[in-house]
């Protein structure tokens, strides 16, 4: 029974991934970002995020999942959804880039889980006002976080210093 279920799940995933390759453009890849968080549950230092990202529709939302890490601290698992509000191709900063670029503003909501305890640690809401889309790559700087710490039941904030998303598929 378990083997049959696993086979069906595997076949379903295979069909889903195949359909994405047929109809989606730049739908899957990885994301690296650096955060500074001001909250009771997090230290003042820099956090590294390593995530996988899936975006079934080119102008649609993207699902991110991965890890948030800092040396000598508990690693957090992250899962979130981001959506660009618009894509502006003829933006005023076009002359800064050789490649065709689109300026975008993105909103994201994510949950952070402490893997050591394990427990739901925080909810993170992010605004990225400086996001540039190069089709297979996105670069964003100086995003803003609003953080709700479930342990202390207090709001905090943070800055996404730098983010690069590289679509491989």
């Amino acid at each position: 029974m378990g083997v049959v279920l696993a086979k069906r799940l595997g076949l379903t995933l295979l069909l889903l991934v195949t359909s994405l390759t047929l109809f989606g453009a730049w739908w899957g890849g990885y994301r690296v970002s650096f955060d500074g968080l001001v909250s009771n549950s997090y230290s003042p230092g820099e956090y590294l995020n390593l995530e996988l990202t899936v975006r079934p529709f080119y102008r649609g939302p993207a699902l991110h999942g991965g890890l948030m890490m800092r040396p000598s601290e508990a690693t957090n698992a992250t899962i979130g959804l981001s959506i660009p509000l618009f894509r502006w191709i003829g933006h005023p900063l076009t002359s800064l880039f050789r490649r065709t670029s689109a300026y975008s503003l993105s909103l994201e909501a994510a949950l952070l889980f402490d893997l050591e305890i394990p427990a739901l640690t925080a909810a993170r809401f992010t605004v990225e006002p400086l996001l540039f889309d190069f089709s297979d790559k996105q670069i964003a700087v100086l995003g803003l976080h609003l953080l709700y710490d479930f342990a202390s039941e207090k709001w905090g904030w943070g800055i996404r210093l730098f983010e690069i998303t590289h679509y491989l598929f």
Binding site: D35, G36, S43, P44, G45, L142, L161
Partner: peptide
């Protein structure tokens, strides 16, 4: 050099 923080 500096106290623990994030920098740009």
């Amino acid at each position: 050099v500096v106290a623990e923080a994030t920098f740009v």
